[in-house]
């Protein structure tokens, strides 16, 4: 149940980043968050690079959820 709850939360957070509702997040989307989050451009790039699995230039909801799950120690 915790997993379902976290997936739901991950999906909500993903939508905060995916402003255009493309279904994926680009590095540019990530950089745009700088105006809303207390992180530097460099930190946002670090986040993107940490979450990205296959270096294709965008983050999928799955990669996003996995990153969140890994961080809090739950296998999503």
């Amino acid at each position: 149940d915790v997993q379902v709850e976290m997936l739901e939360k991950a999906r909500e957070l993903f939508q905060l980043c995916d402003k255009d509702e493309k279904g994926f997040i680009t590095k540019l989307d990530m950089q745009r968050l700088q105006s809303e989050l207390p992180l530097t451009l460099e930190q946002l790039e670090t986040v993107f690079d940490s979450l990205e699995q296959n270096n294709n230039g965008y983050l999928t909801p799955v990669e996003f959820s996995m990153g969140l799950g890994k961080l809090i120690g739950i296998d999503l």
Binding site: L13, E36, L39, L44, T46, G67, L71
Partner: peptide, 29 residues
């Protein structure tokens, strides 16, 4: 030491990122 910083803090940056998003979601409208 920039090299040390990159490796050691990426998890902290991730935590910071997700926490910020969460507080944005649940915080002010």
């Amino acid at each position: 030491d920039p090299n040390m910083k990159a490796g050691a803090t990426s998890e902290g940056v991730l935590a910071n990122f997700f926490n910020s998003l969460l507080s944005k979601k649940t915080g002010s409208p």
